[in-house]
Every structure is written in structure tokens, then in C-alpha cells.
Design a protein around this nucleic acid. Structure first.
Lengths: 217, 217, 217, 217
DNA sequence: TATGAATGAGTTTTCATTCAT
DNA sequence: AATGAATGAAAACTCATTCAT
């Protein structure tokens, strides 16, 4: 049962929407480089607001960081989790859908995506309860429901469905990571989307072949 | 062709071995928390040496960090890469061996292991050429040889061996990461080693079943 | 063609005038003891500002030093060079005027004067281009114009006017230096001004007698 | 009556002559850049001795500096003052001799010469009594005797001989300084010696013409 | 004598945070 | 709400000096 964190109640929501977006984006971009290396000066410079205003809204640098975590979580809920079709009982189909949504998200919000990756890697650094809680939610809220009510009857009887699902999931993570090889621009992604999709479907075809029962025609 | 980085030529090698180990370990532990958050004060306090001595040997905080990268690479070479048996042509056997060596390494050098994970996460931050080169070597020098001269005849003819190998590798990474769940002590690892091994072998059995040709008795 | 260095564009000019003067003066006084021996701590203590503020305005200790050089040049321009009367064609009169202005300057801005002397001595130490350029300007911009369009007809025909001018100039430097004998207070200078002036005019009378044509009555 | 400072009694004189010379030279060269900016590390590196040895002989950095002052004074005595011919009663001849000896000294001991110039400029920095005393001696011991027992009858009766002597001396200092324009190598000096000498004698001819009585043939 | 690793106090520099306006 | 000058504690770094060998 995911804890509800109400982003809407945050002070920042009283700020003019355009300016707010500038602040959030500047902060996301700056925090890509880790919490320690980033500077509040760079953020206010990029966002075009004053130092005082940043602290008026967020109190501390940590407060800003924390807000971004909740904000990221919120975006993920609205543009990722809530779009997953849990009615689909074929887990491969469900996972395929999930990864396409993830690609969408990373394309529409690149700064946010980079921030989340960096934040995830940083998880163990400053193990403040707040953060862990958010991370835990991000992870579990997907995992929990992603594999609930799936049709295990599709799997070969001589393979452990749980193990199979794990392998598929790890592979998708691995495949996605190998795409984000660092030096690709957004334009490249757009151009290569078709190639990636075909490759992805090649993997799904393989999964279907090796993990699912043979379909009798 | 891996570039040779000579750790032995570093000034620090003139230091008394015991003290050197204390310094390196203190630094590895401190840098777990990222470069930005760590302090040289904490390192010298933990290592029991003076501020000046640290700077005598490493010049700057960056210099210390860089040394640790080369040092980590060196340890990996000696206790990981060079122990891999590239004569073994069954890729599953080769990968099983690899992951066991990796577990060994993480058990024998936990601080070093944590450091490398943190350093890897930091890779894209400060893309100094030196660092990227080291990372590239770490990654490519394994990947290159790991899948050379493997017996592809073992694979089912209706699966793409390359895709299969990728899936296996991503799965092993995913499985390993899921073990390092953060709050396990060394004792726990030791205690649970048998359990992990059994589980790992469960996955290998599955890979053998789904990717390899059926063995005729 | 003297390079224009715009002091007015410096960040420090946004500071409150009174405070700015305190900072500049504290820095001039501290730098009298050479760049190496002086401490920013002493400067901020004396100026009554925080460490951070000094670095906010000047970036580095070098930056502060460099600013002071440009500042000194600027003061010299406004209160020394620009007051020289280049219409006066009698070079002795012109030089007499110059030395009186220099005395004025050293009386009105003793710290600045000491700083410039110390800075000049340091010139060859750290031959950063910036500094050399400033010094070059200080020296050449005077020398260039000081002896242009002078009435050489006043000189005896059997002496080389150029040599004569050099001797006069070197003598004035020597005489001035011999006054700044270190342990005289400002009050002493004021008190002895008349004596010095008489002595100086004694030298000028001599120069007139030995270098200029005899004036026919 | 100049205070006798016995260089021969200094600990350093027990050191091997060749090594001693290396140390002294390295220190002279390093101190050219001012006391503050120079480093003992650079000195021992250049001299090829250990840190400990330097401190064994000189106690402190100040001690080394102070020794060099006395050493410089000693060299000046032996190779400069003692060679002046005070029997010569024509002050112009005496001064000409002096400047040629000075040129010799600066040619034979360039590092020592640079050191003395830097030390002189630094005089007021650290007004330790020791230093001032040495400087005072350097200056007065020359000045005192340089103008004693000179033949004032050679001077025109309508010029103040004292003033004339001052002008001559300041001019010689000014002329010498203008030669040491910084970027001339030793080779250049050697090559241009003749030119300089001719120019110098041009000035002496002028001094003779303007300050001395007309010689009747 | 001779070494050079080791010290630590002192210095420069950074940067999150505050606060008067 | 909004500003950005100002703060100061904490961090990085230096270097004359010492001392065990």
C-alpha cells in the first residue's frame, strides 16, 4: 500500500507555474551530478531566481532534493504506473508495455530520468529515512503489482515461473541500460527508436519461445 | 589491448605496507559516500596519519581518488580477471565461475567493492579522461574475452546465441545486485553463502534447460 | 597607446563606498609586506568584513592583488598623469611639477604608495602577463610623453640633451628615494615639506646652471 | 666603523666546499623571488641535499636568509670595497672605478647580485634588527669612504660639490638599473660590454664638462 | 653528519544558509 | 514574495620544522 505523498500541498505550488518549472528543471539538471557536487548557486543562476527565494520555498538544499524525489515519484505515478494495464494477464505483454512507457518517460523527461538514476545510485549514501521510504515505494509499488494476477499457465511446466520473470525483468533493465550509453543525443534516440523496438521484440520473441509453452496451431 | 597502469610506480608504494593499507582502506570507506561528501579530514583521522602526509603522497583529493581507481583496477586484475579460466568453452560454466570470483572479491574486499560501485555511478559526472579510460578498461577487458572462443554448438539452434548470452549476463548482474541489498553484514553473507549458491545454480540449471540443446542420454 | 583597464566595471564597485574603501585600504596595508607574507585573515579582520565576502568580490587572493594594481594605476592616472602640464616646454619645469605631484600623491595615499613600491619590487617574481602589462603602462605612459615636445634649444650646445634629461630624471628618482628613508612619519613629512622643497629647488637651480645656456641679461 | 660579522665561524663552513657552494647558490637563486614565495623544498632539491641537513646547518629559513646576507656582505667586501682605490682623489675616476667593479661583481656572481637587489627591496618587510644592521652597513660603509678625501678643488666654484656628487651617484645607479632590464642573458652582457662602457664614458665626459672647472691647456 | 617521511598549525577557498531591505 | 550581499563554519591545501633512523 503505497504511502501518499501530496506534492500539491508543497509551498512551491504557490509559485507561478512557468517559474516553478524553470526551478525544478534547473535543479534536476544540477543534481544529475550528485548531491555533493551540485551547487545552489548554479541552480538559481540557471532558474533565474534569487538565492533567497529558493530557500523561501525549500528551506534547505536537502529540502529541495527531497521535494524532487517526491516530484519524480509523482510524475512516475501519473505518466508510468497509472498507465500500466494490469488487466493484461500475459506477463510478457505487460512487461513490453512497461518498457515502452519507460522509454516514453525518458524521452519526455530526460532531466527527470537522469535525476532518478543518479538518485537511485546515491541511495545508500545518506540513508535518511525519508529517502529510503521514497525509494522503497518507487521500487515496490511497481514490483508488487507488476506480477500480481499474471497468467502462470502460459509458462512451460518445467521452468520456475518466478525465476523466469526475474530473468526477463533483469534483462529488460540490462537492455535499457545498454542503450543509455551516455553519448547519444535525443535526436539519435528518435531516429533509432524503430531499431530499438525491433531488437526489443526480438528478445520478447525469444522469451516467448523459451519460457512459454509451445503454442499448438 | 589494455593499457597498463603501473600502480607500483606510485609514491604511496614507498610507504610502510601496514600504514598504506590503513590509508587506502580509510579512503575507500570514506569515498563510498561519493567524492563530494567525503572529507580528507575524516580519512586522515581514520588512517591515523597527518593531513600533510596524505597530500605528500597524493597531491590533491582528486589525486587520491584517481589512485584508488587504478588501485581497484589492479586488484580486479590480480584477483578476478587473471583467475578466469578462458579454456572452459561452456559459456555457462565460464559465467558461473566468473560470478563466484566476483562474490569472492566482494567478500574479501568489501570496501573496495563498494568504492567501485560508487565510482561507477559517478562515472558520468566528471568525465575526466583518466577515469573514463579506467572504466572503459574495466568493462571492455572482461567483455571482450569473456565470450571469445565459446562453444556455440551447445545452444539450441532456434535461439540467437548472442541474445541468449546477453540475457544470461544481464540476469547475473541483476541477481548479484539484488543480493547487495545494503543492510547485510559480512557474517550474514558467510552464513547465507550456501543458500545463494543453491539459488544461483537453480538459475544456471534453468539457463541450461532453456538455452542449450537437450542432452541425449 | 595605453590599454584601458576599466576599474569601474569591477564587482567591488557595487559595494558600499565606505566599506569598499576600508577593504581596499586594509588590503593595501597588508600587501605592503609582500604578497607571500600577507594573509587574507588579516585583511578581513582589519576591514571588518567576512572571509566569504572578500572572496565573493575578488575570487582569489591573486584576484585581489591584481585589482589593487589596476586600482593603483587608476589613481595614478587621475591624480598624477592627468595633472601633468605637457604644454610647459621647459623640461626642468615639467619635471619639477611632476615630482611635486608625486609628493602630493605619496602624502595623500601613503598606503597606496607603499603598495606600489612593494609591487614594483615584486614585478619580476611572478611574471604574469597581466601584471607586466600594468607595470609597462605605468612606466611607459609617463616616459613617452614626459619628454615629447620639449624645448631642446634651452640646453647648452655642447651637452647631449638626451643624456642630460636622463641624468636629471635619475637624480630625481634618487633624491625621492632618499627621502622615503622608512622611519619618517606623515607628520614629519608635513613639517619638513618646506625644507625638502628648498633642497629640491637647489638641485633644479643647479641643473639650470649646468645644463642650460647662460641667460643673457 | 663597520661591525665585523665573521662568516668563517658559521657552522656551514664545516661542510664540504663543493656542496656548500651548491647550497648557497641554490638558496640565492630561490630567494631572488622574495623570502615569502621561496620554498626550502626547492632549495634542497636544487642543492641535492636533504631537508634535515639544511636545518642542521641553518636552524630556520630565516637563519639561512640571514646567513646569505652576511655572506653577500662578505663577498662585497672582498671583491668590491677592498678593491676600491681610495688613493685616487678625482671622485669621477673613483666612481668610474666603482661602477666597473660593480659590473664585474654582477657578472661574476649574478645570483648573489640578484639576491642583494631583492633583499634590499625587501628591507622594510620584516624589520628584524639583524637585517637592518646589515643593510645599513652595506650602504654606509661605501658611502662613508667613497667621498672622503676627494679633491673638491676640481669642481666649478659655482656648484655645490656635495649636490654634484649626489647627482653623479644617483645617475650611476639609474644607469646601471636601466641596463638590468630583466631579459638580457649573460651572453648579451658580455657581447655588449664595449657598448655599455662607451656609453658610460660618454656620461663621465659630460659630468667632467659640466661639474669640473675648465681645464686650461 | 645525513636522510626524508611525518607533522600540524596556518592559510586559502568554498558554499549552504541567513537577513536586512 | 523577492532580492543578493553577507556570513562563517568547514573543507582543501601548504610548508617550515622535527625526529627517528
Amino acid at each position: 500500500m503505497a504511502r501518499e505523498v501530496d506534492i500539491g500541498a508543497h509551498k512551491i505550488m504557490q509559485m507561478d507555474a512557468g517559474k516553478r518549472e524553470r526551478v525544478i528543471n534547473a535543479a534536476l539538471v544540477e543534481f544529475r551530478n550528485g548531491f555533493g557536487h551540485s551547487s545552489t548557486d548554479a541552480i538559481v543562476r540557471e532558474a533565474g531566481i534569487s538565492k533567497g527565494l529558493l530557500y523561501h520555498y525549500f528551506g534547505t538544499k536537502e529540502g529541495l532534493y527531497e521535494f524532487l524525489l517526491f516530484y519524480a515519484l509523482d510524475v512516475m505515478r501519473r505518466e508510468y504506473f497509472s498507465l500500466l494495464n494490469f488487466g493484461e494477464r500475459d506477463v510478457l505483454e505487460r512487461l513490453r508495455q512497461m518498457i515502452l512507457l519507460k522509454w516514453d518517460l525518458s524521452y519526455k523527461h530526460p532531466a527527470l530520468f537522469d535525476f532518478m538514476i543518479a538518485a537511485y545510485a546515491r541511495e545508500r549514501e545518506d540513508p535518511s529515512d525519508q529517502f529510503s521510504a521514497v525509494y522503497a515505494e518507487i521500487q515496490s509499488s511497481v514490483a508488487e503489482r507488476l506480477f500480481s494476477d499474471i497468467d502462470t499457465a502460459l509458462f512451460r511446466e518445467d521452468v520456475d515461473a518466478q525465476k523466469a520473470v526475474n530473468v526477463i525483468q533483469w534483462s529488460l533493465v540490462g537492455y535499457s541500460d545498454s542503450q543509455i550509453s551516455g553519448d547519444k543525443s535525443l535526436e539519435d534516440y528518435q531516429k533509432d527508436y524503430g531499431v530499438y523496438l525491433a531488437e526489443l521484440d526480438g528478445y520478447f520473441a525469444m522469451f516467448r519461445k523459451i519460457f512459454y509453452k509451445e503454442v499448438k496451431l
